[in-house]
């Protein structure tokens, strides 16, 4: 009886299935590899997923409100390139970084304006913006990587003890947005809007502001992630983040965010990103071809959504 109650309680936790999947993965991989279940390896995984996870927060917010952002990768690249370019011009690197994040906000606002105010389908707007922003990166950098070695780079390459600073930043943002979505009035409204925008309007929610807000937050997070990424590599490259948009959609999906909007959690998204990261890590440790990695990640995405679908019935 008691055990049943506990299982019942666990099932009420929305992130239960993605966390369970992660635990099972860890158990299996621990048997297959000696190196897998070590602190150092987990730190590595977290560091590798930090950029994806930060951008995935924004993606999840957008998907929760019923939209999508396919330009996240280019916004990320633009953030890095802009910060590096401005710093190279002699502007204080911290101010340059701040300006780059502000640029991200502007990009988000622009997408929001086109997709929400002017009602052009978000899928198309962000697809178009992806090309535009990528082009802007090349225009700014003239197609060459810009070195990024200044005091801001510590965000991407610094460490506190053995843990990279980027991991702390990621965890902080995850907790912050988890609390924001679940425990604030505005956060709740994100879910209401995504569940049914007309009902939300009738309930006095300013749907436009919420949906545009999600894009602005995404712009800021993506640009910031771009700075971390550039700091990590000591260089800002226009080609970075080519698969990021889809990776963040995948992380959100695996983490239990409903593609039709209105449901999901930020902690779930972290686990979604970590599961993908762990897969990549495992394939390296086990010396399996990287091609199989791609296949396996695809299978997981479909499984994640499929299992939730059957559970809902």
């Amino acid at each position: 009886m008691k055990g049943k109650q506990i299982i019942g309680k666990i099932r009420e936790i929305p992130e239960a299935s993605v966390i369970a999947a992660f635990v099972i993965m860890c158990v299996i991989l621990s048997f297959l590899s000696d190196v897998f279940f070590t602190v150092q390896n987990f730190v590595n995984i977290l560091q590798q997923v930090s950029v994806t996870a930060i951008v995935a927060i924004g993606q999840a917010l957008i998907i929760i409100t019923g939209n999508i952002d396919l330009s996240a990768g280019s916004t990320m690249a633009l953030g890095g390139v802009a910060a590096a370019f401005l710093a190279k011009q002699g502007i204080n690197p911290w101010l340059a970084a701040l300006l780059a994040v502000a640029l991200g906000c502007v990009v988000g606002y622009l997408i929001g304006f086109l997709a929400i105010r002017l009602q052009i389908v978000a899928f198309i707007v962000t697809l178009g913006m992806d090309y535009i922003l990528r082009g802007c990166c090349y225009l700014i950098s003239d197609g060459m990587p810009i070195s990024y070695t200044n005091s801001v780079s510590v965000l991407g390459s610094g460490k506190l003890g053995i843990v990279p600073i980027s991991v702390f930043i990621m965890l902080f943002l995850i907790v912050f947005f988890q609390v924001f979505t679940k425990k604030t009035v505005t956060g709740r409204r994100f879910f209401a809007v995504g569940c049914n925008d007309k009902s939300a309007r009738m309930s006095g929610i300013r749907v436009d502001r919420i949906q545009m807000g999600a894009y602005v937050v995404m712009g800021a997070l993506a640009a910031f992630a771009g700075i971390i990424n550039a700091g990590n590599l000591w260089t800002a490259d226009s080609v970075s983040g080519k698969t990021l948009a889809l990776d963040t959609v995948a992380s959100s999906t695996i983490g239990g965010v409903s593609m039709s909007g209105g449901a999901g959690s930020i902690v779930g998204v972290l686990f979604g990103a970590v599961i993908i990261g762990t897969m990549r890590n495992a394939f390296v440790l086990l010396n399996i071809s990287a091609y199989w990695q791609q296949v396996a990640i695809g299978v997981i995405i479909i499984l994640a959504v499929g299992i939730d679908r059957f559970r809902a019935k």
Partner: peptide
Amino acid sequence: EKGIFAQHSVSDNINII
């Protein structure tokens, strides 16, 4: 279409305003 949040709980539906 313009009233309920179908996938959300009764409680969330009551409290939204």
